[in-house]
């Protein structure tokens, strides 16, 4: 469920609502940002910028444009990509053995069985490489359907249906 009431209060610059929204989405956003910049320290900086933008620009969000989570995703991915292109970031050393989001998913043996991330590793390991690539581009990197189609050299319709199939299996696993 989307926290419509909290979003309304956020738009009215209510700090308590902001705090609750932060609690609800910050880890997800942090995961997204980190999957792009691949540096926890830099990701923290970007995350701070993102939530300040959320505070400043909350009045630009409306349910008619889409999901609040999608709106957050767009701000986060754009901020992370901006950081990636910045001069200060280019001078930093990066992990070389990083391809996509799956690199950051922890093993179940490192997690509590009650943790949200439990079972994800197992699921991701079973995913076909094409699925991982599609989810990485579309969800984590914010590619459009067309951009993903060009990058992966598969038809537009296939991007849509394959992505659906990949995410559906995730959905079923998590239910």
């Amino acid at each position: 469920m989307q926290p419509d009431e909290l979003i309304l209060q956020l738009k009215q610059k209510n700090e308590i609502a902001f705090s609750k929204i932060y609690d609800m989405y910050s880890e997800n956003i942090f995961g997204i940002i980190n999957s792009i910049v691949n540096d926890a320290e830099v990701a923290e900086e970007v995350l701070q910028d993102v939530f300040i933008k959320v505070w400043d620009k909350s009045d630009t969000y409306s349910t008619e444009k889409g999901r609040f989570f999608t709106w957050l995703l767009n701000i986060s991915r754009n901020s992370a990509i901006d950081k990636l292109r910045s001069k200060s970031f280019k001078n930093k050393k990066k992990n070389s053995d990083f391809d996509d989001f799956s690199f950051f998913i922890k093993d179940d043996k490192d997690l509590d069985s009650m943790s949200d991330g439990f079972g994800i590793r197992k699921f991701v390991d079973q995913l076909k490489p094409m699925c991982i690539k599609l989810i990485d581009l579309l969800f984590f990197k914010g590619y459009t359907q067309k951009e993903a189609s060009e990058t992966l050299e598969i038809p537009l319709g296939t991007v849509k249906s394959r992505n659906r199939a990949c995410l559906n299996s995730l959905k079923e696993t998590l239910e």
Binding site: Q2, E27, F30, F101, G117, R121, K171, L174
Partner: peptide, 18 residues
């Protein structure tokens, strides 16, 4: 909402911990 919930879980699993 189901799709969003799944994607939220997936993205959360990639977080190095805030």
């Amino acid at each position: 909402e189901a799709i969003e919930a799944a994607l939220m879980k997936l993205s959360k699993a990639t977080s190095p911990g805030l």
